[in-house]
Amino acid sequence: MAEVRNAPGTQPLTPGKAGLGVTQRQDPWWAEWLGTVVGLGILGVYAFVAAEMGKGQWGPYLSPFYSPEFLQLPKLFHVATLPAGIPIALIPLVVILGFRGTCYYYRKAYYRAFFADPAGCAVGEARTDYAGETRWPWLIQNAHRYFMYLATIALIFLWFDTVVAFFPGVGGHSEFGSVNFGLGSFVMLLNVILLSGYTFGCHSLRHLIGGKNDCMSCEPSRLAGWKAASKFNAKHMQWAWASLFWVCATDLYIRLGGLGYLQHVEKWGGWH
C-alpha cells in the first residue's frame, strides 16, 4: 500500500492493546455471547450426532437429516461411497453444515462465540495475527452461494418429503394410508416453512436475485424478487435460529416416534 494511513507524527496504534475480554463496558455484553455459545453448541452437537445415528424414519415421516430418502437405501448406505471415500449418506450433513457454516449470520455468531473475534463490541481480543476472511480456511466463505444452490435442491426434497408425510402414496408408502394429517406431518410442514424463510433471506440469494443490479428499475421482476428477499433478509437471524431449532425438534420427534415412544400421538393421523 503506497499511502500511509496512520496519522503522521503520531505513534501508529499497536495491535492487541486490550487483551481477551478486557472492556470498560458495564452492561451485560457477555449475555449474548453466552447465549450464542450455549445455543449453537447444543443444537450443533445434536445435529451432528443425529445425522450420524441412523433411525431417521418413522412411518411416513423422514427426518430432515436423512433426506432425500434414496440416499438412505440400505444398499447405498453401506456400499456407495464418493470417489473420496465419503459415504453418500453423509451428503445431507455436508450440505447443511456447508450452508449454515458459510451463512453470513452464522459467521457472525461463531466468530463471536467460538473465536472471540470479537466476543462483544468494544471488548478486547487475544489474537494478534488476525487476517479476517482474507486467508484459508476462511476464504471458503466465498463459496456460500454454491452451498446455497445445494441447499435449495435439498429444500425441494424436504418439501417433497412433507407432501409424502401428508399423502404417503405419493412417495410409494401407501402402506401408511392415502392421507395422513398426523402431528408429524405438521411438524414437518413447519420445518420446511422455517427452512424456506431462512433460505429465502440468504444474502447471496438477495444479491443474485436482484441486488447485483445498479439500475434496479431496469428489471422490475428482479427488483420485486430483491424486495421480497430483503424482507426475509432483515430477519435472517431469527429465521436462522428458529429453523435450526425446529430442524432438530423435527428430527427428535421422528426419532422418538421411530423408537416407539410416541405411538399414541399419531393415532388420529390415520396410519397406525
Binding site: 500511509v4 495491535p15 488476525y130
Partner: peptide, 15 residues
C-alpha cells in the same frame, strides 16, 4: 472506532 479490525488489530494500512 468499534470495528475490531482497526480497534484491536490496528490494520489501518490494510483495511
Amino acid at each position: 472506532d468499534t470495528c475490531h479490525v482497526l480497534r484491536d488489530h490496528a490494520k489501518h494500512e490494510q483495511f
